[in-house]
């Protein structure tokens, strides 16, 4: 066992498929007990990075240490102490909630009496206590997600991987998952999550990396990234001729971005833009603080990724 302060350590990781490089030499380390985010547009290499970490894909180059185990050589031993919430639910539709947890625990070699003791706690954590005998098909999307989270905890893991844990959930369900993830961090577990909800990353992650085209384009604490990478204020302007109006006043702020019919003024000081706006009746504007999404878009661009 090495590197007791790092739950996950990656260096020089490379992976390509059919000559196309998906991960081009990334390295980062996740401290024990942290909530660590991997952000990036579609196709940036997030899921491939996770698959490499779990020993599901052999990297072309690079070193991975997960919980002190070398991956992929020692992946089975590493996975014994790891839980995974996949991007798409793969619960067993033929089983009840209870059976899903019980059957899954067998894959970890856990015994039935022990699980009988632990399952009520897991169900309680997932808010599924009264659904114990419900079939998975009868659960709502949010409940399925919570069951998947409970299932990832059957082995009481030290490290939890979450691949877009709240995609497709309504705000209530999403907030409930966030609350549970914070509880897990408070219990001392290490969380590694991919997401493209910037709000999720901003709320949960102490540290994050932004991946694009298989490379790390930014790394740090979300609030520090906002402070260091981008102007603190944003004025969004839309309405008739907003774009032309804004382009003529480019000099009023540090940076101007245009996306479709909307202009974004990124400013250290908003006074000049606000004064100019006061004279315009036809324009609508929104004045807000810069957030992680602005950083993300600045780093990865506005064009669509499919």
């Amino acid at each position: 066992m090495a590197s007791l302060n790092s739950a996950l350590e990656i260096s020089g990781l490379r992976k390509s498929y059919g000559g196309r490089s998906v991960i081009s030499g990334i390295g980062f380390s996740v401290p024990v007990g942290a909530c660590f985010g991997i952000l990036g547009p579609n196709g940036a290499g997030k899921t491939t990075t996770l698959r490499c970490c779990l020993g599901l894909t052999p990297p072309d180059e690079g070193k991975i240490l997960l919980g002190g185990h070398s991956i992929p050589d020692d992946a089975c031993a590493a996975r014994a102490r790891v839980g995974v919430v996949p991007q798409f639910d793969n619960l067993d539709p033929d089983f009840t909630v209870n059976e899903n947890l019980l059957v899954y625990s067998r894959y970890f070699g856990l015994k039935k009496p022990e699980m009988r003791r632990r399952i009520p706690g897991l169900l309680d954590f997932a808010g599924l206590t009264d659904k114990e005998n419900a079939r998975v098909e009868a659960l709502s999307g949010g409940m399925k997600r919570r069951l998947t989270l409970a299932r990832a905890l059957v082995n009481d893991p030290d490290i939890l991987f979450l691949d877009e844990p709240t995609t497709g959930l309504d705000p209530q369900a999403r907030h409930l998952i966030w609350d549970r993830l914070k509880q897990l961090v408070a219990q001392g577990k290490t969380l590694i999550l991919t997401t493209h909800f910037m709000e999720e990353a901003e709320r949960l992650c102490e540290r994050l990396i932004v991946l694009d085209h298989g490379q790390i384009v930014a790394e740090g604490n979300p609030h520090e990234l906002i402070a260091s990478q981008i102007e603190p204020n944003v004025i969004e302007i839309f309405g008739e001729n907003a774009v032309a109006w804004a382009k003529a006043r480019r000099a009023l702020c540090q940076r101007l971005e245009i996306a479709g019919e909307t202009a974004y003024f990124y400013c250290n000081d908003t006074t000049l833009v606000c004064e100019a706006l006061d004279k315009e009746r036809a324009l609508h504007s929104l004045h807000r603080a810069a957030n992680l999404e602005d950083v993300f878009i600045k780093l990865t661009g506005r064009e669509l990724r499919d």
Partner: peptide
């Protein structure tokens, strides 16, 4: 995707 679920266990 039952196999996928099992493959992330030991």
């Amino acid at each position: 995707k039952t196999w996928d679920a099992i493959l992330v266990t030991p």
